[in-house]
Amino acid sequence: MPTVVRAGLRRARIELRQQIMTPMALFVLLGPAVMLAVLYWLRDSPLMESALSVGQFLVPAYLAFGIISGGVLGVSGEITTERDDGTLLRAKTVPHAMTGHLFAKFFVSIVTTLLPMTVIIVGASFLVDGVTPTTTWGWIRLLLLSVLTIAAMLPLGAVLGSIFKGPIALLWTTMVIYGLCAVSGLFYPITALPVWLQWIAQVFPVYWLGLGFRSVILPAEAVVLEIGESWRTWETFGMLGLWVVIGLVLAPIALRRMSRRQSGSALASARERVLTRGY
């Protein structure tokens, strides 16, 4: 194994251990716990005129939301912090350490996004009826979809994290993402939204990954709630694939641009900002 990959794995192990040792680790489980409680509570409420329950409809929404928040918000937040505290600059002073650092980030994010997802899907399968794939092929598609979504989300997180500056930027990123989730029909059927909003939603990956998870998890008759009453499987994979490519092209550019600007004085001014403004 090349040195960078070994070093990246070592870093990932250390970072994961650090995350598990902190009280924050409980949040990783707290989120899914709250979601499971909501699912249980809404397991019998009918969703509009469909045969689905609200709880059922929310399972794929939570899975999609978990990947989005873990991937985009997690990575962009970390990159902002690491830029301001000198972690990235440190990596620049050591040969190949930047590459190793990104490897580590990738490994860590996969674990930290898949873990809560696993909790949700296992928990939901006990609490709510009809929320797990029923065939092996269904499970394989769920796994493929998860990997594809993570691959689409991580680079976008890196791009957003390196474009914006400071934790206020994180707030912006959060609002953009939540806004997208709201218009993408993640938490209620998109067909209930005005048509022009539906068109906007279909440009962004959030809609497609929500659709993907619904198609894998919900029973076949749920398709009536979708645009054109179709799961559009190929379009889903196509659009998510396109966003993977967009992310992979943009991320190195944004990261390189950001890391080029890293220097001791940039750090000093970031510290100054924290001292005087408190963020």
């Binding site: 070994r6 505290d85 040969p95 350490a97």
Partner: peptide, 20 residues
Amino acid sequence: SWRDHGKWRVGEFLDYLGMY
């Protein structure tokens, strides 16, 4: 000035960077 890697331990930090 540096203030990075606050959660890391002295030994593991040097071991990790040394790998490169």
